[in-house]
């Protein structure tokens, strides 16, 4: 019986972690991605200013496309770098 509860806990943990690895925009139930929200954009961009791939961040394709636009707008307004420092 003890092993059963252990297994249940493990499953719970795995579920929690897989949830964490999914798309953050889907999780937050967002409609649009704002280019002014630099805190969020910086998490989706490397130190050099390159966008992370979907496989790394787990972003859904719908939001990856919106993210692309937001990052490009932020770059144009000098909120994010085109090339890193």
């Amino acid at each position: 019986m003890a092993s059963n509860t252990k297994l249940k806990n493990l499953r719970k943990l795995l579920k929690k972690q897989s949830e964490r690895n999914k798309c953050r925009f889907t999780r937050a139930r967002v409609y649009e991605i704002d280019y002014k929200d630099i805190g969020t954009l910086q998490k989706m961009v490397s130190q050099q200013g390159k966008m992370y791939g979907r496989k790394r961040t787990g972003t859904r394709s719908h939001f990856q496309r919106k993210l692309k636009i937001a990052v490009k707008r932020a770059r144009f307004m000098a909120l994010l770098p085109y090339v890193g420092r």
Partner: peptide
Amino acid sequence: TQAAERELLAEDSRKN
């Protein structure tokens, strides 16, 4: 909605 969504994203990143 933009302000609300920014708040949602901030809370989500705090949680996770």
